[in-house]
Each structure stands twice: as structure tokens, then as C-alpha cells.
Write a protein that binds this DNA or RNA. Sequence first.
DNA 1: CAATAAATATCTATTTGACATATAACCATA
DNA 2: TATGGTTATATGTCAAATAGATATTTATTG
Lengths: 243, 243
Amino acid sequence: MTEADFLDGYDPNAFPRPSVAVDLVLMTVKEGRLAALLQQRPNHPHKGDWALPGGFVGIEESLDDAAKRLMTTKAGLDEGWIEQLYSFGEPNRDPRMRVISVAYFALLPAAKFNATLAQRPDLVLAPLEVPWAGEVGGQVLALAETARPRILAFDHAEILGLAVKRLRGKLDYSKIGFALLPERFTLGELQGVHEAILGTEFNKPAFRRRMLDRGWIAGTGERQSGAAFRPAELYHLISKERT
Amino acid sequence: MTEADFLDGYDPNAFPRPSVAVDLVLMTVKEGRLAALLQQRPNHPHKGDWALPGGFVGIEESLDDAAKRLMTTKAGLDEGWIEQLYSFGEPNRDPRMRVISVAYFALLPAAKFNATLAQRPDLVLAPLEVPWAGEVGGQVLALAETARPRILAFDHAEILGLAVKRLRGKLDYSKIGFALLPERFTLGELQGVHEAILGTEFNKPAFRRRMLDRGWIAGTGERQSGAAFRPAELYHLISKERT
DNA sequence: CAATAAATATCTATTTGACATATAACCATA
DNA sequence: TATGGTTATATGTCAAATAGATATTTATTG
């Protein structure tokens, strides 16, 4: 069945159609580690395994709208950086029926997850194994050793891996990293986010210079309080416009 | 309709499903300009306008397989660099019915298009308008002034624009550019491809150095023939493994 | 040998990494 | 209350690596 056939008079309604779903990779950096929100499956298939939150796309609903709706209804979260990741369409990725899944990923500061996690025992923020970004041939990512159980349902390990890969790829040239920080943040916190995502350590003066020279952030004049040493200045993102 | 609902016993078969299509952005660099393969639509809607080749995904067929099949049956092309681009799902993007389209883009050397173009008068290689990559706020791309007609069907202008954006973004750090060159190529040809895609000019010695230091290509010892000046050495890509 | 573009060499400017030093807060102790 | 120790922020300096610009040499055709 091709588009030309369709245009020449075939009726596409006569052909079976797949279901289309959206799966969400909701990520944050918590305690210096990259983590993703997972839901324990209450039913078959893959009962008891961890899975990405997701759901079907409404027949009159855009993909973006479906992703935003599911973020609210399935995870109790909103706002943050959200973007489409990739579409997964292997015929047997779901044993029940043909489901094509459009994966989205969203980034939020760790604090935004607290209320949801307190109310929903089926949800966890699973820390991710993030080897050095430059490692050759290394597995991009799996659930960390500390996550139990470590099995992901369907092809969700592949989706999660691609999400981390994309996040790493965009971290340096886009403003994506700021979505993991509160409105006002210190340069040390910003560096911590970058180090957690890439699995590397950076030279502090060079990192500061690079971030400031970019012209995206500016100091607020205010300082962090409560620390037993020199307080860090709080910075803010000048414009949230996506680059 | 959410996945949880489904798991709790709802029957997703009772809900209407969208059609899922694949659209192809087949690009090349011809005569120093980036160009894409377009098909003139023979029927409504958008009759006479240019459109990306595409077709529906089979119910037992993966998205990747559908893209490869359509490349053969709709454009008479195969091999080359192909990858998924993005999924488009606005409810009214097709006036006839709900169609979610997974866009793929593929890159081939200009010579590979010759046979197909000679046989298929409905297909054209339309040159694209490519402003300087660093331009702020500029339209990413439209059909060049020389392309007639300049109107693209459906949301295909958006798809084409995103394809060029992605190509530009990956050109520097991936091996994507080599897909537009024959097996053996000169450094001048490689530079020409980069300049056509990014819409900039590069310093020749610096470009050579950068490409050679990367370690992806090696000289063959053979030289280009026929030129009325010093013949350029032919290089080849050492490994086609994607980075 | 004239013309042309490839290929190389050289110099400068910019960027980046590494290290040292100064600064500002808290805290323990006198 | 005063003082010095502790700690991470913040800044300055130097060396190394990278990138851009220009000039020179090389190889081929006509």
C-alpha cells in the first residue's frame, strides 16, 4: 500500500491500522546521578517489570498534546523541557498487538518529582548507569545496579538508552541542561548536572569560563546561603528561547 | 485512553486508530547545491504541488522496513545513508483523514539519481535555499527561487526544513557527509559538500587538516585524472561504521 | 612556460586545560 | 568576642592545543 495507490483510488480504510502510543522518558539529576521515572507494571505482559509511562494517542489529538496530557495524567508533572525523541515500530515490540510508539523525553528539576513520588508507590526515580561519554563500544546505559528490579518492559531499555544519548548530544550546544536546575542556580550546580549526565569531571575554571562566555546566563547579585564556606553567586538563564 | 486503562481491561480495538505513513526526504548535493527529490502530485488534495515521496506502513512491517521499501518502489533508489527524522502528527495535516507520518531522510550521491530521474517525469531534484547556517531568525529553508512550482503539499515544507536542520547539525560530528560522495573522493569534493550544506565557505588548509586529523579517511595513493592542473589525491572512508 | 588548483609550511589568534592564589562564609576554640 | 582553621567559590596566569590566514611549493595540461 503506497500513497500513490491511495491517491489513485484505493481506500486506506480497508487496510488494518496500527495503534499509536506515546511513551515518556522523564529524566532528572538527583544526588549527582541521572535518573528516570519508571512505573511498575501491574498487569501482563511484563507484569512487575519497570516500564516508561505512556498511553495511546487520541484520534483528534496531536502527538505533542498527547505527550503533555500523559505527563499530567500519568506522572502528575507538567512544564519543563519536553521534546520528541524517536518513533519505535518493530512489529512485535508489544506481544498483544501492533503498537507504534512515539517516544518523548522531558527534563525537570528533581524537586518537581517529590509530590508525585510521595503519592504514587508504583512510580520510582531509577538511577541510571552512565559510563563515560567518550567510552568506545560501551553500553550507552542500563539501570544502575542499585535499581530493583533491573528489567525493563518491552523495548523500553532501548528507548531509555536513546534518550540518554540524545540528552548527552544536546547538552553542550543547547540550553537543555538548564531544565534540570531551579530558576536560580550556582555555577557549581550547573557543573554537577553536566558531570552527572556525561559521566565525566570538568576543570572548574574552564567550565565557568565556557558557560559565562556563551552569554546565556547572568549573575543575579544574590548569593547562596547556609554553606559553611564562601557562598556561591546565584545565576539565572537570560532567555529560555531554545537554541 | 491511556495504557493503564488498556491494561485494566479496556479494548483498544474499539477505539479509532490513525493511519501511519512514512515520508522520505531524499537529499543530495548536485552542482554545489543541496537538493531534494520531490514528486508532483497527480491527484487531490494539493494536486500539482510538490510533495515528498511516501506511503503507508504495512501492518506487519517495521518503520525502517517501510522506509527502505518506499525508497525502492517510489524512488527507484536504494542503499545510502538513511535514518529516521521525526514524526508528524497534527490532526489536520492531511485533510482526508488522520495520518501520522514518520519522516525518514536519506542521502545519496547525485549520480545515483540519474537513472530514476530519466525514467520518471513526475520526479524532480529540487535545489534548496540554504541561508548561512549561523543566520539568526532566518527561515531554515525553502525551495530555491529556481524551483517551479515552489509550493509544497501538506506539511512537507516543515519536514524538509527539519531534515536540512538535522543534516547540518550532524555534518560536523558524524560521517553523514560521506554518504553524498562516491566511494573515492578528493578533499576538494568533500569541502564542496560541506559548503553546500552549511552555506558557508571554509579555509582550505584548515578544512583539510581537520578532516585528516579526525582519522576517518585515508589516501588511496591514486589521483584524479583529466584536470588541467595538479591532480588531487583520491581518499576513501576507512570504516563506514556510524559514529 | 603559463595557468590552475592541490598540497604544504608558517605564523598568528583564539580557545582550552592545569595550576596557583585570593576571597568569603561558617565553626571550633580560647 | 576574637581568632584562626576549613572549605568551596572566584580569579589570575601560564602552557598546550586548536583554528584561521597567508604565502609558497608542487604537479598536471595545453
